[in-house]
């Protein structure tokens, strides 16, 4: 490998953290698109929120302002709310239709 490539890999900067955030977000998107279990879909949303959170924290460190950390705090609150309501909806759906498969829930489809 080129020396400057090795140098840029060894010098940990904001770009490395941004790549990690993008990777987590992409994996969350991929899981959301290909899985069919509703609970796993909720978990993939959590993955996406965390990828976005890493990006927020990286830029907030980079810019030296605390707004990003406050935003991630609010994102955690919203994630907790989303999981609580989402899981009770999952329980309700399972009680009515006896399945957790998102592909089998097609009442609202056309």
């Amino acid at each position: 490998m080129q020396p400057e490539v090795i140098q840029s890999l060894l010098q940990i900067g904001p770009t490395h953290y941004l790549v990690l955030g993008a990777t987590l977000f992409s994996l969350g998107v991929l899981g959301f698109l290909v899985r069919s279990n509703i609970i796993v879909l909720l978990m993939c949303i959590e993955l996406m929120i965390n990828g976005a959170g890493i990006t927020f924290i990286t830029f907030c460190r980079q810019l030296g302002s605390l707004e990003g950390q406050v935003f991630v705090l609010f994102a955690m609150v919203v994630a907790a709310v989303e999981i609580a309501v989402g899981l009770s909806i999952v329980v309700l759906v399972f009680r009515n239709r006896s399945t957790l498969d998102a592909d089998k829930m097609e009442v609202l489809k056309w």
């Binding site: 953290y17 993939c44 993955l47």
Partner: peptide, 16 residues
Amino acid sequence: FYTAFAIAVISAASVV
């Protein structure tokens, strides 16, 4: 960083 990166990516792929 690279340890955290590896663990995070492997476990996130495992979630999927």
